[in-house]
Design a protein around this nucleic acid. Structure first.
Lengths: 204, 204
DNA sequence: CAATAAATGATAGTAATACTATTATATTTG
DNA sequence: CAAATATAATAGTATTACTATCATTTATTG
């Protein structure tokens, strides 16, 4: 993905952060190294204290950007889905023919992620690893309904619906467009996970 | 499922527990109320201390049965998959015709769970809620490869492979039997989750 | 350029978690 | 009944997930 638009910013629900991490150098370092640390040690073992140490800063400074690590994970994964949505729209917008459009969409959403130089502080490939390994943990919680109501999963919801619409354009009589769309998105992440850890459960 | 076999015991990898919870009254209470407590408060907020209090026992007593709550979750979900495998075999064993066999298997594995009086201390319906909401957390960890090697996910692996084999019996030329099988199992859980929390992302 | 506001850093403190260890008290079994 | 085993009670430790306060650095603007 070439940088077609300079100064492009992926917009993420403001409730996920206390202070926009894109607004400062420290904020960007928190995001950049947060991605690396989570991918290195896994979400459970990741803490703001460790992140502070890693970037030569301080726990309390990280807390000024994000309320807690759960919101931080939602911020990161929302950013990812926002970025994917941008690619999706960019790629499929000009395609008229429904089945070609759907095919392009599926490619964008399920092909392995490649780096994108447009957002210099974010390593999209590493972020993709986080999405594969940790995304489910952001919604498999007791607070999911409340958070969903507050729009924390808006981008993802919208993307599933977009994909569902494209399915319907191809097959208007098919009655399970949304379920197919959500299964493809979730299933794709799951198959990548299985390839890495349970190869006998995939044919990929 | 009627109790066809009296004294049936679902066998779970012994490494998941320190002392077999089926071997004592306290052990059964730990499992029984552990299921209820996890479903009530979610896995993150669940602790052995709270479980001890709930059953009028003691944190340290719970620790004598299970090393930690992660192993406890693996015990519970392994039990669930063992129980499902038993139903799967029981239901499909006598069916010769491959496509009928596959259809029965899919029904057993994806229909909503109903209670089973054979295992009196376990509420299968509540356990099923736990599988839907928490199962992913048992393998989305940094320790997954080690634990998989030690057989913690053996029952689930075997079940995906069984289902894959049935797919292959029906369509020998279809090259993605395992991926289809794992997608169906995971996807089914995910669709139940979506029905509850993201109804606009399903058509169920 | 100085004043001042804003951001960051350092330190301390709290309640809860995830355990381990020790000792006491029941309960079972030989 | 003694010995072994299971359970309960209590205490203790390191870490987590924060909150609060105050000091210091950096940026802004008048």
């Amino acid at each position: 993905m070439k940088d077609l638009f300079k100064n492009l910013k992926i917009s993420v629900n403001q409730k996920t952060y206390l202070k926009d991490p894109e607004s400062s150098d420290l904020g960007k370092r928190i995001v950049q190294h947060g991605i690396i640390l989570i991918s290195e040690m896994g979400f459970e073992k990741f803490t703001f204290r460790k992140l502070g140490m890693r970037i030569g800063s301080n726990e309390s400074s990280v807390y000024r950007y994000f309320e807690n690590k759960h919101k931080f994970l939602i911020y990161l994964t929302s950013w990812y889905w926002g970025w994917k949505e941008y690619q999706l729209v960019l790629t499929t917008n000009s395609i008229q023919e429904p089945s070609l459009k759907l095919e392009s969409a599926l490619r964008v959403l399920t092909d392995p992620v490649v780096a994108d130089s447009s957002f210099s502080h974010i390593d999209e490939v590493t972020l993709y690893e986080i999405v594969i390994n940790e995304y489910s943990k952001s919604f498999l919680t007791k607070e999911v309904d409340q958070e969903n109501k507050e729009g924390y999963f808006e981008i993802y919801n919208r993307m599933v619906r977009r994909l569902g619409d494209m399915v319907r354009q191809v097959a208007p009589a098919y009655p399970y467009a949304e379920s197919l769309a959500s299964t493809v998105l979730e299933g794709s992440l799951h198959q990548y996970f299985l390839m890495e850890h349970f190869p006998s459960l995939t044919t990929c």
